[in-house]
């Protein structure tokens, strides 16, 4: 059992289980706008291991308008995605960049991976 947990498979599984629990808790917390204070023992623990700033800061920053800077920048340049759209322009900007990045990554992988596609198989000589 312990051997299994410490194997790579076990560690991945554990990490996955941890992530599932964390996301479940975070979803409820997000309903509260990631506000409130951590219980004493937890903030104690997190500050002792130096994670406190990371946790409270990163989650408190996860608020509407993550793309605000980009929105401002784009708007100042007179760009508009679609006059009908009410959503944050910055979000759309991010998603466009992500799309373009994925296309580039996809094409790059294809160019590299193309080499082992084959129309002809030469069987290696065995000794």
């Amino acid at each position: 059992m312990i051997k299994y947990i410490l194997s790579p498979k076990g560690i991945i599984l554990l990490a996955f289980a941890g992530a599932v629990v964390a996301v479940s808790v975070l979803m409820a917390w997000s309903e509260l706008g990631f506000s409130g204070t951590l219980p004493d023992w937890l903030s104690d623990l997190t500050s002792r291991i130096g994670l406190h700033g990371l946790i409270s800061e990163s989650f408190n920053n996860l608020k509407p308008g993550m793309g605000a800077d980009l929105t401002k920048f784009l708007e100042s340049k007179g760009v508009s995605v679609n006059p009908k759209s009410t959503a944050s322009l910055g979000d759309y900007g991010y998603i466009l960049f992500m799309g373009i990045a994925l296309v580039i990554a996809g094409i790059a992988i294809m160019i590299i991976g193309k080499e082992d596609a084959e129309e002809k198989t030469v069987i290696p000589v065995k000794k």
Binding site: L102, A105, G106
Partner: peptide, 11 residues
Amino acid sequence: AVNYILTAFVL
């Protein structure tokens, strides 16, 4: 690589 392109298409 194909998945990336499929996702990018949607994005």
